[in-house]
């Protein structure tokens, strides 16, 4: 009988595992589309300063609200700035801030969730109550308060967003940890006398990592929407830095006669959100996590 059977797989390096996951993701149509959009946006964010045809802040009263033309592909806005230039640059800040915001959300949400799941009992109850209570305040009001007190600098926005979007991650991490904690391999490690740190690092994290990462990816797209709303309200990116939320906000009054100045940033923002969403979904499927059965929050 042959020993090399279909069930056998060798231990792979992390890189090999990652590339396998990406290939699995891309083999699904939705995953392929999501990944393509996301990669497109990331590349654009890196190279846009070098390919932008015009200066994004050059105001030119003579060129106000020009319709799209060969010269100004997406037309111009009410100050005569090139909409194409501003659109390709308009995702950079949002993408950067929300990316780092998500990392912070992942970190604190994941760790607190694992901690709560691990200790359980009263401590868990109390911490979860506090998290819930804190975050039952409408986040946008809280954000506005923070921003108006501390300003809209990156150093304020990243941790603030990271904090507010970590809530869902706490829940997911806690639930995943709860599932793992009941398993005998944890009991076994405890009985051997491993430290709590070793149990978390060796036994729990490898088993909850996937669920937390997927949740983090999902939160990223929501955070992006949230951040753009802030900009829309004038509390995110400050002018003249181009930003989709801000652009939509400025141009929406002109929609009826200068639709171009609002459509481009809308397409930019929504395609990025859809791209991240599809990617996160494909990521979950590739890892074998079924989000439909384990709806978080």
């Amino acid at each position: 009988m042959k020993l090399d059977n279909i069930y056998q797989e060798e231990k792979k390096s992390n890189l090999a595992k990652l590339s396998e996951i990406i290939i699995t993701m891309a083999s699904r149509p939705s995953g392929f589309i999501g990944l393509s959009i996301l990669i497109f946006h990331v590349i654009l964010a890196f190279i846009s300063p070098y390919i932008a045809p015009y200066d994004f802040k050059a105001i030119n009263p003579t060129l106000m609200l020009q319709a799209p033309s060969a010269e100004y592909w997406f037309g111009t806005d009410d100050l005569g700035r090139d909409v194409f230039t501003r659109t390709i640059l308009g995702g950079r800040t949002a993408l950067t801030i929300t990316f780092f915001g998500s990392l912070i959300a992942l970190l604190w949400g994941g760790l607190l969730g694992i901690f709560c799941g691990l200790v359980g009992g009263k401590t868990d109850d109390i911490v979860m109550r506090i998290v819930d209570a804190f975050l039952s305040i409408p986040w946008i009001l809280a954000m506005l308060l923070i921003v108006s007190l501390l300003g809209t600098s990156t150093e304020v926005l990243i941790p603030a967003l990271g904090f507010f979007y970590g809530k869902g991650i706490v829940r997911v991490a806690r639930a995943a940890t709860h599932d793992v904690i009941a398993k005998d391999f944890i009991v076994s490690a405890r009985a051997r006398g491993h430290s709590n740190f070793s149990i978390i690092w060796n036994e729990i994290i490898p088993n909850v990592r996937d669920a937390i990462l997927v949740e983090g990816a999902m939160r990223w797209s929501w955070m992006l929407l949230g951040f753009s709303s802030l900009s829309f309200l004038g509390f995110g990116v400050s002018p003249p830095t181009p930003d989709w939320g801000l652009m939509i906000s400025n141009a929406r009054g002109l929609m009826s006669f200068a639709y171009w100045s609002v459509i481009a940033p809308i397409v930019g923002l929504s395609s990025l959100i859809i791209g991240i969403n599809l990617t996160a979904d494909a990521f979950a499927k590739a890892l074998g996590i079924d989000r439909s059965t384990k709806a978080p929050v």
Binding site: D184, A191, R192, N202, P206
Partner: peptide, 27 residues
């Protein structure tokens, strides 16, 4: 457990019913 020293922990080991649950699937 907390009151046992490492050697007290070593001398007694457990084997469980279901190896699917007692072996970490990621190790």
């Amino acid at each position: 457990l907390k009151e046992r020293d490492p050697n007290d922990l070593r001398i007694i080991q457990l084997i469980f019913q279901n190896p699917d649950e007692s072996l970490n699937p990621n190790h």
